[in-house]
Design a protein around this nucleic acid. Structure first.
Length: 426
RNA sequence: GCCGGGGUGGGGUAGGUGGUUAUCCUACGGGACUGUGGAUCCCGCGACUCGGGUUCGAAUCUCGGCCCCGGCCCCA
């Protein structure tokens, strides 16, 4: 029998699960502080949900199958499309903006490597409707706030706007498909390939120069003025630039200044339309991106009424990898706070009574289930990391007392049975 | 899909020019030891990724598969 895990999957043991739980609950707390509400969608969807958006090519990158009713299904490769589907089906007439977040695993049929698995987790959010610089700013501020709360060091937020590049190309009457191809080349970050393509295209040399310059533009809000000069007379691109400028000004009101403007961000996706941002942790290596998002128009590509949305998702596993590599103290809980140890077989019954009492009062408690000797119990309790051991002895019980051992100091104290709860809680 | 490096008890490891019973730490089980024994000591359990080849003999050499690690492609 084959007992190994499928390729690209992982088991998470106690310690790792605790770390992941701490991080997930921190993110939940922050998102909820920004008035986002959690949703959950199915692990599998109709295959067409994903092919409609990204074309049939993606089929070889996802886990798809036919069920017994010959329905074509796929394990979800991401969560934006399912959320858009949910919105279309049930929320189109809900008051805007709709703010929701999700946490769940996604599946892609890819070659596993650093920071890349076949089952991976995304923690993200979508704000549907209510597009404004304020909305975009709040989202970016929330992403940044989340990482600060987790005390992640060395992350870089890169912020751009696709409307600038698209605007230039639109005004040159470049057809959509060609535009997508160019954006793809820009996203790759390989100047040679881009140049080769542009050389063969019919794009004016002047425009080409501007494109090259813009995708190199990085830095503080000063670059916006430089870009403005470059874009003289190109109204569509200027409009996008103005939007970005407004966003930058609004970010200042959200006390956000730790980002880099990067007009070379293209994000391979064709449904992104406006502001885009990505967050990197360079120390992670090849898969350094831990977050990506922006403004998009997905609902429209699904045939719904046009509504602008903004969203982003953390690559949860990469975020974990970054935090763990920085050895962040994640406030891990131990499995049990208290261990109840019968000193002799005769007090086992009393030990269960005490353990149940503690548990009903919300104290994580472990008790001897293996009829082991005291030495083993103390050793086990030590391994568990409990703070206190309640020693249940015959002689003490006769006087209505219990011995409580502090595992850190080794000191012991006799306590009245009735005062146990108070003593433990203090 | 491509390139490179790997895989030894539950966890972490030594051995690698072929040659007795495969090293050590830890964890686990038992005992010294039936109310303080979380210590110490003793005993025990437990592994060469899988399959083929070379060989009298393979953890070691060789070929292939699987999986892991790193990189490329891709990355919604």
């Amino acid at each position: 029998m084959e007992l190994s895990r499928p390729r690209g999957t992982r088991d998470f043991l106690f310690e790792e699960m605790k770390q992941r739980k701490v991080v997930a609950s921190t993110l939940k707390r922050i998102f909820e502080n920004y008035a986002y509400q959690e949703i959950k969608t199915p692990i599998f969807e109709n295959l067409s949900l994903f092919t409609q958006k990204s074309g049939d090519e993606i089929v070889d990158q996802l886990y798809n199958f036919e069920d017994k009713g010959e329905r074509k299904l796929a394990l979800r490769p991401e969560l934006t499309a399912p959320v858009a589907r949910l919105y279309m089906a049930q929320m189109q007439k809900s008051p805007k903006p709709i703010k929701m977040y999700y946490y769940g695993s996604c599946f892609r049929y890819e070659r596993p490597q650093a920071g890349r698995f076949r089952q991976f987790w995304q923690f993200g959010c979508e704000m549907i409707g209510g597009k404004s610089p304020e909305a975009d700013a709040e989202i970016i501020a929330m992403a940044s706030h989340s990482l600060k709360e987790l005390e992640l060091d060395g992350f870089e937020i890169h912020l751009g706007h696709l409307g600038i590049l698209r605007g230039i190309l639109d005004e040159e009457n470049i057809p959509g498909k060609t535009q997508d191809h160019i954006m793809g080349l820009i996203d790759k970050g390989d100047p040679k390939l881009l140049q080769e393509f542009l050389d063969e295209s019919e794009i004016e040399p002047d425009t080409q120069k501007i494109l090259y310059k813009i995708i190199e533009m990085k830095g503080t809000s000063k670059v916006l003025d430089e870009v403005k000069e470059l874009l003289k007379g190109r109204n569509k691109a200027l409009e996008a630039l103005f939007e970005l400028k407004e966003l930058v000004e609004t970010l200042a009101m959200f006390q956000m200044d730790d980002y880099v403007l990067n007009l070379g961000i293209a994000r391979g996706l064709d449904y992104y339309s406006g502001m885009v941002f990505e967050i990197y942790v360079p120390s992670l290596g090849a898969q350094k991106q831990i977050c990506g998002g922006g403004t998009y128009n997905l609902v429209e590509t699904f045939g719904g009424e046009k509504v602008e949305s903004t969203g982003f998702a953390f690559g949860f596993d990469r975020l974990m990898a970054a935090l763990i590599s920085q050895k962040k103290d994640l406030n891990l809980k131990v499995a049990a706070e208290v261990f109840v140890a019968p000193i002799s077989p005769k007090t086992r019954g009393a030990a269960f009574e005490i353990a149940q009492k503690l548990r009903y009062h919300g104290i994580a408690t472990e008790v001897d289930l293996g009829r082991r000797k005291l030495k083993k119990l103390l050793s086990y309790a030590d391994n568990l990391g409990v703070k206190k051991v309640v020693l249940v002895g015959e002689r003490d019980l006769e006087e209505g007392k219990l011995t409580i051992k502090d595992m850190q100091t080794g000191s012991q104290e006799l306590v009245n049975e009735k005062e146990l709860l108070e003593y433990i809680k203090s």
